[in-house]
Nucleic acid binder design. Structure first.
Length: 1070
RNA sequence: GGGCCGGUAGCUCAAUUAGGUUGAGCGCCACUCUGAUAAGGUGGAGGUUCUCGGUUCAAAUCCGAGCCGGCCCA
């Protein structure tokens, strides 16, 4: 790019971004940037792999954009950053998508289609989706190593999972177990508890009487899953709970029922009993050992009737005050807690339900029925048996399969586990080795989750996943004798078949056929695949292609930084901790930045399936990539959700437009004067810098300091707020306003050079500071500013450092005061009805303290210029202006203790009081009505506030909400002031006409001026020279209408006719 | 049902760490200014600080109960 070249008048994000994309391509900007940092200290970032189904949504976009801003920041700080993106490509979600596409309904369809074909179809689907995501992420301007993402379906990655699992096995943390698990009957596989999604559904709600065997009456249980009653093995009570025996009457018959004391009224109401009487009070302990008859004994002949079955036991999962009856139907073949308690009691586990949710022959009369569909028949049978106390329905949340939305069932099956409960203490200790932003996420939420985490069921009875690398002896189904393979080399060595470790694909269709024969025993592979969460859990070494490639593991592992949304506490934050600890005894990441979710503008969660979403592509279409990124990044990244807002997007576009305008403002002048920032540096013009230059440079230093601090706190949102404030408030609204006249100067001047050098430095550093956020606009600005003198891209720049030389806190504060005074002065001017164009003879600044007075004294000229005042008069804190009146402002922290509940009343009286002197006695007198005997107003309770006199306009100014003084504008008129005022009115109108004619700034004109009012005409004539200079009028003469532009103006009731004629180009040049 | 986070102007958020007359930006309305500006300036409207109760002279802030939203767990 050529330095100071022509740029677009308007900030046009789409055209600009397209240019920058092309430019990046041309100069290999990303590759150069990576290379530029290759000698830096290494920084190991690990990308939490997005799942390859569907396109990028706003949440993914926010996540990747956050990653991008931090990676760019770390690069600018000199680090050699590992930025390999990843994709999570296995698992049930993809299987169900492919099943849908192929029109499959269950596993049998897959078997018919062929495992190999199905796996191939899944792979194709995942790769297709991956391409879409890759394109999206690149389109968002995210710089990661898109040429070489890690993919969980590649052999070297699958091997990383095998390796981790085998390490855990070596530590004795792998076992095959008979467990109660959540099963999706459609997918016919176990699913993890954290894959269960809860939805409100209508289910049966039945109260069942279990007839007591050795005594009169029955115990009453409640369940919403009648289909589990065939497997009832025992009833649980709370040992310490209170229970009652109730003699209840219905339809003339009497029954003795046992329920929890707290629930008896509710239960009897459900059963529509007409009358009842408590006849017995007993504790849970007394119920223990009672035996009862299975309510479906005839229908299910194989029902549990072993030693100890059909009796009452204590269990800690019973709550006599909760739902139900205080007596809990327990079926160890189904419920997780029931299962645990059943095992404690040494019971055999009875589960008459297959993996497809259909009753087996053990279920007797119900054999062959899908469990949920058998509910009605079971309820009817219970009724026939006289066991049904009440039957209805209940609305409650029930678990569903996260992929296919089928209601899950709890059954007991054989699964493989990583027994992380054996290393729970180690997990909790390892948490301490990680730093989290925000910290409560680690110490509350994550710790709670880890403390309660059960063993990790890693096996799935599916196809599209990493096969378990476990071989067991043919025909045996325990884990006593097993072989766990750690990598492809080992596989090739030990299997009976000929396998090339470099070529072998590790998917199920390949490895299922491999056998191992050792010591005369033949081993076959366990047919399961891994839970897909295990895939990404090994990302910290999978990213490095370890164990295949061990060149970087030692140096880089564990990860320095990971960044994901809060749903990953149960997901990736957890799975990595579990796997890292099981395999290596360490947490695989050192720092976590946990962000929230992207919500709709109205606060609802976004949902693709319900079509409630904001598409990032639409956001880009409307405002461009930089704006979208800036908006996303201006949200708190720590734990809080982000509400999307089109207003917020528009605001960011406004800010970028302001930056664009600030940037392009000095370009024509610099170009005209051949300004060369390499030859004329800030240091060279140091002696010519004006106060305002030094001020903006000081502000630049504190902005850098503030930003760096916020970045280090992982609050990039606060960092960018500080930068935007600097650009918009300080540079655009103040500095540029102040230096315009210097840049307009036609002659070469030291002052102009100083301004060039200053704004150049400000812009040059600003684009570096903004580069991680808005990589497109900053690169174009950078290119235009630097030409060939620096890097090819702004993203190779170092993060700007604070230059102590330019730091000046006093100056910053001085100007903050001046700006406050200026603002107050502008306000006062408006009250007095005097435009800024018209000079005022005098502005009086009444300072409340010496600090303000110092600031005014030091910068009187600047203040006079900004307020267009002939004179600034300072009234110091000790002096006072006798024309003023005073009122008092109350300090509630003093008033409260002194006046108690009358403090508010006293405050109001003080606020309303008007006195001539700021004197406590006068004040006390003014508020005497609300004071009681012996009370007084103390100095500490009030501060006096000046009240504006009628003839002069005054406005208070302050800093950070504290009043520090008042600016009074004396708006009286003199002939001299009127002369300048009217002259400025003329100038302004001529300028507008020049603009209408689209005259070049340099172009010379002839001016024709006729003013109706003689007095005004004379006043204007006094300032003829000023007018001619300002509007570049070489001639004052009559202008023919057809040669120029003529217009009649009304200036405060005075009619002025102005005509402008551009002079020939030859005459215009000097 | 439990845990965590949040609820303050139309919108996005500050002020909650140590209780003391609720603020900013954006948007809106009016006026104004304009030789970088689809800009800028000044003013205005806009608040039961989610609700109820408690502590206190005084609560957005502390305590209790509840409501709403989000995430997690069951």
């Amino acid at each position: 790019m050529s330095r100071f070249g022509e740029v677009d008048d308007q900030y046009d994000p789409h055209a600009l971004e397209q240019r920058v994309f092309d430019y990046w391509d041309d100069v290999d900007a990303y590759e150069q940037t990576v290379e530029h940092r290759s000698d830096g200290e290494s920084f190991f970032f690990v990308d939490g792999p997005p799942y390859t189904s569907g396109s990028a949504h706003m949440g993914t976009t926010w996540n990747k954009t956050l990653k991008d801003v931090y990676l760019r920041f770390f690069r600018m700080q000199g680090y050699d950053v590992t930025d390999r993106p990843g994709y999570d490509m296995h698992g049930l979600p993809i299987e169900t998508r492919v099943e849908e596409q192929l029109g499959f309904e269950n596993k049998k369809d897959i078997e018919e289609y062929g495992e190999e074909n199905f796996i191939e179809a899944c792979k194709e689907y995942a790769e297709e989706q991956l391409e879409g995501l890759q394109e999206d992420f690149q389109d968002f301007g995210v710089w990661m190593d898109w040429s070489d993402p890690y993919k969980t379906v590649r052999p070297e990655y699958m091997e990383a999972a095998w390796w981790g699992f085998s390490k855990a096995a070596e530590r004795g943390l792998v076992e095959k177990g008979h467990r109660s698990i959540s099963q999706c009957p459609r997918c016919e596989t176990a699913i993890a508890n954290n894959e269960v999604e809860y939805e409100d559904v209508e289910d049966p709600s039945v109260y069942v009487k279990f007839d007591l065997a050795d005594r009169e009456g029955s115990i009453v249980i409640w369940t919403t899953t009648p289909w589990t009653i065939p497997a009832n093995t025992f009833v649980a009570v709370d040992e310490e709970g209170d229970y009652v025996g109730v003699r209840a009457e219905k339809d003339g018959e009497e029954e003795l029922l046992y329920v929890a004391e707290a629930k008896h009224e509710e239960v009897l109401k459900e059963g529509r009993y007409e009358d009842y009487e408590i006849v017995e009070e007993l504790t849970g302990e007394e119920l223990i050992g009672w035996s009862y008859d299975h309510p479906l004994a005839e229908e299910v002949p194989d029902h549990p009737d072993h030693e100890g079955a059909g009796e009452v036991y204590a269990a800690d999962y019973v709550d006599t005050g909760g739902d139900g009856t205080g007596l809990v139907h327990s079926a160890p073949g189904h419920g997780e807690e029931d299962f645990e308690r059943g095992r404690e009691l040494g019971f055999p586990i009875f589960c008459p339900v297959g993996s497809d949710g259909v009753y087996t022959d053990e279920a007797g009369k119900y054999e062959g029925q899908f469990v949920k569909e058998a509910d009605d028949e079971i309820i009817a049978d219970l009724e026939d048996n006289g066991a049904l106390l009440a039957s209805g329905t209940v609305h409650h949340s029930y678990g569903h399969c996260w992929r296919c939305d089928t209601g899950i069932i709890q059954i007991v099956t054989d699964q493989w586990f990583i027994t992380i409960t054996d290393v729970k203490d180690e997990l909790l200790e390892n948490i301490e080795d990680s730093e989290w932003h925000p910290d409560w996420a680690r110490d509350n939420r994550f710790r709670d989750f880890v403390e309660e985490a059960p063993d990790w069921n890693v096996s799935r009875q599916r196809y599209w996943g990493i096969p378990l690398p476990v071989w067991t002896p043919e025909g045996r189904d325990d884990d006593e004798d097993r072989i766990v393979i750690g990598d492809r080399e080992e596989l090739a060595e030990r299997v009976d078949q000929d396998v090339d470790p470099d070529e072998v694909d590790l998917h199920k269709d390949t490895v299922d056929d491999l056998t191992i024969t050792e010591d005369g025993t033949t081993y076959t592979r366990v047919p399961d695949v891994f839970d897909v969460w295990l895939d990404s859990s090994v990302a910290s070494w999978g990213t490095l292609d370890f164990p295949e490639d061990d060149s970087k593991f030692e140096e880089l592992w564990p990860a320095d930084f990971i960044l994901e949304a809060h749903d990953q506490t149960r997901g990736w934050f957890w799975s990595q901790l579990g796997m890292g600890t099981a395999a290596l005894g360490e947490i695989p990441y050192e720092e976590v930045l946990m962000h929230g979710h992207a919500l709709m503008p109205d606060g609802r969660a976004m949902s693709k399936s319900k079509d409630i979403l904001i598409d990032p592509h639409e956001a880009i279409d409307r405002h461009g990539r930089d704006v979208m990124r800036l908006f996303l990044l201006s949200n708190n990244p720590q734990g809080d959700d982000m509400r999307f807002s089109w207003d917020g997007m528009q605001t960011m576009e406004d800010h970028l437009r302001t930056l664009w305008n600030v940037f392009r403002f000095p370009l024509p002048y610099m170009r005209l004067d051949d300004f060369d920032p390499q030859e004329t540096t800030l240091e060279d013009v140091d002696g010519d810098l004006e106060l305002i230059d030094e001020w903006v440079l000081a502000r630049l230093q504190s902005t850098k300091a503030e930003m760096t601090e916020h970045f280090e706190d992982r609050r990039q949102d606060k960092a960018v707020d500080a930068l935007i404030e600097f650009v918009v408030e300080d540079v655009s609204r103040f500095y540029v306003q102040a230096v315009r006249e210097r840049m307009w100067e036609e002659e070469d001047s030291a002052s102009k050079e100083a301004a060039y050098a200053t704004i150049y430095r400000v812009l040059r550093e600003t684009v570096a500071l903004l580069a991680p956020y808005a990589p497109f606009i900053t690169d174009e600005i950078y290119g235009t500013l630097t030409g060939d003198a620096e890097h090819d891209t702004v993203h190779m720049c170092d993060w700007p450092e604070i230059e102590e030389y330019w730091v000046d806190e006093q100056l910053e504060e001085d100007v903050a005061f001046l700006r406050a005074i200026e603002e107050a002065g502008a306000n006062a001017r408006q009250q007095a009805g005097r435009k800024l164009r018209w000079p005022v003879p005098r502005v009086v600044v009444a300072a409340d303290d010496d600090r303000v007075a110092e600031a005014v004294e030091r910068h009187t000229d600047l203040l006079a210029e900004r307020l267009n005042a002939r004179e600034i008069e300072l009234v110091s804190a000790e002096d006072r202006w006798e024309e003023l009146q005073y009122s008092a402002e109350a300090d509630m922290s003093e008033l409260g203790p002194a006046f108690g509940d009358r403090a508010g009343q006293v405050m109001n009286a003080l606020n309303e009081a008007r006195i001539d002197e700021p004197d406590l006695d006068l004040l006390e007198e003014a508020v005497s009505d609300v004071l009681e005997e012996g009370e007084s107003i103390e100095e500490s309770m009030v501060s006096f506030v000046t009240e504006t006199p009628a003839d002069i306009a005054g406005t208070a100014f302050g800093l950070n909400g504290d009043d520090r003084g008042v600016a009074y504008v004396d708006a009286s008129l003199t002939e001299d002031i009127e002369s300048e005022g009217y002259a400025r009115e003329v100038i302004r109108r001529v300028q507008e006409m020049r603009k209408d004619l689209e005259l070049d700034v340099e172009e010379r004109i002839a001016l024709d001026l006729e003013i109706d009012d003689d007095r005004v005409a004379d006043l204007v004539a006094e300032r003829e020279d000023l007018i001619r200079e300002e509007v570049r009028a070489d001639e004052l003469r009559a202008v023919e209408d057809d040669d120029g532009h003529r217009k009649e103006w009304d200036v405060d009731g005075v009619t002025m006719e102005i005509a402008v004629e551009p002079l020939a180009a030859a005459e215009a040049s000097d």
